[in-house]
Design a protein around this nucleic acid. Structure first.
Length: 478
RNA sequence: UCCCUAGUAGCUCAGUUGGUUAGAGCGGCGGACUGUUAAUCCGUAGGUCGUAGGUUCAAGUCCUACCUGGGGAGCCA
């Protein structure tokens, strides 16, 4: 008999159908004559209720059906007498594929804290919450490829190991095969990287952008979607040492085209989730609502589904950095001295400032553009004012910066001048400079933190809960 | 890295101004029950109080250091 997935059974199954299912026991409810087994196979958030007549089955067999056990069950579908579900399965044959010792199995049929589940990340997929999160994460990854494919972008695989340390996006993880205690030394006593695997110092990538630009300047529109690494000692709910990033790079796009793409892209992804992940989103929305019951009224956030619909339907506000500083200087918290950090043209905006703009002043996503060149990277297109660059940051409620991007500097002389000012080793970057030497053109791109997107879409509060096996300072378990 | 906060049963927590034998709920186990919805009812086992020092007649409780978790900040995606 062909095995049916529970998703299929619950949507198209009919009473009388004889079927085979396999899955894991969530809960078992016992009474004298009949046992109810809630079986889940991961295909949907819903369980299949398996009904086992106690007179038909060996007591030992029923005894071993605990939370976590894997079962194979054949039986007949029937309209459920209970009110919790349309269909249920009257079991005819139950086989225990793998037992789960109830004394040792950590995922009990009760509410667990996210912290506890994080320590049991290998088993947390078996909970409703993490099942939902990781199904949504998959759907978002798929939607990203779908979106770009439909728009004619090519998926370019930029390298994970890189010798370039010019990006300046953060501390990098060194990649080496040299002996940690006794590396070969140069004459002045330093590790001799000419004898390392690649013959020079190498690192895990912090961004695929520079290589992405090379692809865009031939293929037209490309995107990368892969793991990225930062060796920063940051301990927050929004940072990981290993995370996934989506970086499109487009020839002939100026900053406005770039913003249009970013906005359309984010809305597409949110809509995709609303349409294709409604069961999981509904569960997460309900979960969030329960959690927020303990919070005071003014700290509660919008319902998850409302929030997603709202963002997908509202126009993102687009203002320049200079305008944002003006708004902040005229704001109540500024006048009341309620900001912890100063507001002045030239400073980098702090979380509290971004929060104010997005959550209080505009109450919708905001795209800030044209930042002072001093606080942005060397490759950004310099404006004629000599002070600002064509950067754009997309700010979302609660999570802050979800996208950072810019129009790139395509003029060789300007780029070289800026690199010299910022002490970027131009000679090592000869391949990057070549794009400006040969057939240079206006182009743009941005980076979207995948986990931050998932945070927003799922409403989860900690980035460690939207990646299967988080890597953070002092933590690389599993 | 900085600030705040917590660590007591498998989980979530309570534990009074330091004082006898450390508690509850959930979960587990045993039993009861005519179909349950993280069932209900009765019973039961389960603890080196994060680690190492210190103060004290006496420390889960006070002090110091360290470890780990959580929240916030910085850096950023």
């Amino acid at each position: 008999m062909r095995r049916l997935k529970i998703k299929e059974i619950l949507t198209t199954g009919q009473p009388g159908d004889k079927i085979l299912v396999k899955g894991w026991v969530r809960t078992k409810r016992e009474s004298k004559n009949v046992n109810f087994i809630a079986l889940n196979d991961g295909s949907v958030i819903h369980n299949l209720q398996v009904v086992a007549d106690t007179s038909v089955y060996d007591a030992k067999l029923l005894h071993d059906i605990n939370s976590g056990a894997a079962l194979s069950v054949t039986g007949v579908l029937a309209e459920s007498q209970g009110s919790g579900q349309r269909l249920e399965m009257i079991a005819e044959d139950i086989m225990i594929l793998g037992k789960a010792d109830p004394d040792r199995y950590p995922i009990q049929p009760k509410k667990h804290s996210l912290e506890f589940l994080r320590e049991n990340a290998h088993l947390r997929f078996r909970t409703n919450t993490f099942g939902a999160v990781f199904r949504i994460r998959h759907a978002m990854a798929f939607a990203i490829h779908k979106y770009f494919n439909e728009k004619g972008f090519y998926y370019l695989h930029t390298p994970i190991i890189t010798a370039s340390d010019a990006e300046g996006a953060g501390q990098m993880f060194r990649v080496t095969t040299l002996h940690a205690q006794n590396p070969p030394l140069t004459e002045d006593g330093k590790p001799d990287f000419t004898r390392d695997f690649f013959g020079k110092p190498t690192n895990l990538t912090v961004s695929g952008q520079l290589e992405g630009e090379l692809g865009a300047m031939a293929l037209g529109e490309i995107y990368t979607f892969g793991p990225t690494f930062r060796a920063e000692n940051s301990n927050t709910t929004r940072h990981l040492a290993e995370f996934w990033m989506i970086e499109p790079e487009m020839a002939f796009y100026d900053l406005k085209d770039n913003m249009d793409l970013a906005e359309e892209f984010l809305k597409y992804l949110i809509d995709y989730a609303l349409i294709n992940c409604s069961d999981d989103l509904q569960f997460l929305a309900e979960r969030l609502k329960q959690e927020e019951k303990n919070k005071p009224m003014n700290q509660r956030s919008m319902d998850l589904l409302e929030k997603l619909s709202f963002v997908s339907q509202s126009d993102f506000v687009r203002i320049t950095y200079t305008e944002a500083i003006e708004i902040l200087k005229n704001s109540k918290p500024y006048k009341k001295n309620a900001f912890q950090f100063p507001v002045d043209w030239g400073i980098d905006l702090q979380s509290e400032h971004e929060r104010y703009l997005v959550e209080k002043h505009f109450q919708r996503p905001v795209i800030l553009t044209d930042y002072p060149k001093e606080i942005k990277a060397f490759y950004m297109k310099q404006n004629d004012d000599g002070k600002t660059v064509r950067a754009m940051d997309v700010l979302f409620p609660q999570i802050g910066e979800i996208i950072g991007g810019s129009q790139r500097e395509e003029e060789l002389e300007k780029l070289e001048k800026r690199m010299k000012e910022m002490n970027i080793p131009i000679e090592e970057m000869w391949w990057y400079m070549d794009t400006r030497r040969f057939g240079s053109a206006v182009h743009s791109g941005f980076g979207l933190g995948f986990e931050r997107l998932i945070l927003f879409v799922t409403g989860m509060g900690n980035i460690r809960d939207v990646i299967a096996f988080p890597r953070t300072p002092k933590y690389a378990e599993f």
